[in-house]
Nucleic acid binder design. Sequence first.
DNA 1: GGCCATTCGTT
DNA 2: GACGTACGAATGGCCT
Length: 943
Amino acid sequence: MDHSATPQTHPTLLVVDGHSLAFRAFYALPVDNFSTKDGQATNAVYGFLTMLSQVIETEKPDHIGIAFDVKGGTFRNELLTQYKGTREAAPEELLTQLPLIQQALTALGVRWIEKPGYEGDDVIATLATMGEHDGCRVLVLSGDRDSFQLIDDDVTVLYPGYHFKDLKHMDPAAVEAKYHVTPGQYPDLAALRGETSDNIPGVPGVGDGFAAKWINQYGSLDAIIEHADEIGGKKGEALRDNIDQVRLNRRVNALVRDLDLGVTIDDLDYGRVDADLTERLFNELQFGERTRTKLLTTFNTAPDDTPTPAPAIPTIIEPLVDALTDTASLTMWIEQYCPPADPTEERPDPTLDITAEYDHQSTQCADAVRRSWTLYIDGDAKPGHASAHMAAIIAGAHAVAFDPADPRYHDTLRTLLDTHADSLSVHGYKEHLHMLAAADLTCPTVLFDTNLAGYLIDPDFQGGSLEECAAHFLDIHLDDHDDTPKQGTLGFEDNDDQDDDPAQRCIDHAAVVAALARRLAPELERREQYPLLRDIELPTSRVLFHMERTGASVDRARLDELHTQFADESAQMEAIAESAAGRSINLQSPKQLGVVLFEEMGLKPTKKTKKGAYTTNAAALQTLYATSEEGSKANEFLGALLRHRETNKLKQIVETLIDAINPKDGRIHTTFTQTVTATGRLSSVDPNLQNIPNRNADGREIRSGFVPGEGFVDLLSADYSQVELRIMADLSGDEALIEAFRSGADFHRYVASLVFGIPVDEVTPDERSRVKAMSYGLAYGLSTYGLSKQLGISNGEATKLRDQYFETFGKVHDYLESLVADARRTGYTETIFGRRRYFPDLNSPNRQRRDAAERGALNAPIQGSAADIMKIAMIRADRALRDAKLASRIVLQIHDELVVELAAGEVDEVIALVKDAMEHAVDLAVPLDVSTGVGTDWQRAAH
DNA sequence: GGCCATTCGTT
DNA sequence: GACGTACGAATGGCCT
């Protein structure tokens, strides 16, 4: 017996019209403000969930059921063929969000229900009726007025007003006040009036007012129909003319209240969130931290099994800004506030072999980061012309800002960095190294980098800037020179009046970094990524900093020569093409090309592009060229066009390189971005030096423009052969594949002999290349279709090749399957060193997305492991060169290749050191093979 | 000046 | 109906 003082209240059941709410949310929130980076609209998902969350907070229901419509018609369409006929097919952007809403509800532990052949409205009516019978107070959240018929003393409809978030509580009194009929009479009224949004015509000229008047006069629709003759005037006549329609309307708008839904009220409990699923989905939706926290606390009410409470978002501290006057004041400030690293904490010995002691290091960083101090430098981090304008330090609750080049503070800062880097958190270690270098300062490896940490936590998150990281991980939106107010964002309180003060601005940013570090460190630990940050990414940043600062030396005269050469031929080809076309044309415009080729020359319609037009890509042009009549205008035009494409592209590449030459040193300083690729690879920008032509002879000539700089004699090119396949051999443990590598024979030839069951020396070049394509295709998730297309063989032959291959290398097959299966289970893949990539799309209802995710899950661990290995090799090679006090230095990395500038007299020693660093970066079941070449330019260094 | 689509260079 | 990963960058052509 319940002796508590509070009276026993009825439990509350919340019933939601899923489609209605999704529609309302979609049209209420601008899609532009709610989209993921890859263009998936999320406004309806966001609006739906926050609205639901808001209602739950306010109404505190005990049970929740969400009703959805099912695709396909209902019994209503049979009654009324035009039913909902004018309703625009919901926009694609909304439709794609419905499955996401349902997935989110499942993840959040909320039951949703649909019933084929019926509408969500009927499900709602049934649930409401069920709740009422079970003694519940029922709330129906719906924007559909048909639901008003459900209203009674126990059932209230929550009806969104003009502003989406204003909910009107429609109870019997509210309905009577608005429509002057009872809720039970509302469908009669609606039948007379019609419903434009559902394409249901009512009696012409009859609106709510007349309908209510008649209902009150006669009591019901039946009675009105019975006395239809007595009603005079135009409206009476209209009623009589439309009696059948009105009867039909009434049948259609009557909700079914007794469906068999297979659920009881107890099935509509909620409160147990699937944290893992939710996180993956919210990552995919790119929800900010505030949204996540809000939703999780609302939906996760179960007192028990809630193992991982949402991590608290550290508040941005508003530090006490201390004024500096001289060296002594900064020195004192540092002594007082800047923490030295915890001496009891084990710091990795920088000379330690990364792989050897890998498992014995601490995997914790959160405590150290909480105690850490923060440095933020405002300046330009572009290698070649870096600069530092302002530095801000936050330590504890205190902050200072000063010009790092100011002689009063310069040496103090130098000492601080030299002695306290291991308790320092920054956003962008590499960038800070560039800016510090501009102020003649260095900095040993730091404790924590929020940019690298954010990348390791979620490598698919695009955006390394502090602003973007703050938005993504803290849901804090800094001003970014954008005056347009952003929906649902908060201004950064500190800078309202201090916007113009560079010192204050710098401190504000440092405060964000401090908060970000405290938010990310525990998350990094939770995902077991801290060892990667400490042992791979941070040391890699140092190496990249040196490479970028050094730059790659180029032979300007050679590049100019190549430019002229390509430009000449390009112009020549353009002239030929224009003469063949009989008019002037911009050959670089696919649109104009389309007109000439497919309209004026009337060439056969080739393949389509992604969006409508006929493609004019090289493959298509090649086909057209091959099939065009020899000597025809079209043939002549296509030949010139194809050659123009090539030479013009090469001309442009050379031009870009020339423009990128730094006048100060005549070298090209690329920037290696470390937090861009989802797999762990680096990328190169401004300019991109990782896509210098290499496939064709004339393009490859450009590489001859890369030369050793002054004081250096040669370039060394060292690259891994078949790293990805070796990784596949190691990870799969396939004995046959491992043996293929250990044998030291020509790998593809050896594999072909196994696959085709013939002696090695009988393998034809064709067989070798097929097997080679197959081997590489595997790691990319290549389909047999793709394989057949690439090799120019039939799909059947490709399938046969694949089957033979897997028969030979059974464990490779099992391994590749297990990659996808594991990823589907855990939500992520892992490289050899534990680098993760998440694949929420593996469970996508969309086939294409799912297939793409599967290919990604196949590729990410393999490509990612190769990237890890190369990063380790770079760290080792860089260290080996420095330890040996050699002048030779790494200048470029092209995924599996290193380019090293060789100083006189060091050639043999450097080759040995670099080769060793690369070959022993990691110990696999198969040897890593590195081939090297030396030459006076990059092309000659090829091997 | 910003944004998208097309095209093409690398591994 | 699509159908190999991961990228960066130039161009034209449209928008504001």
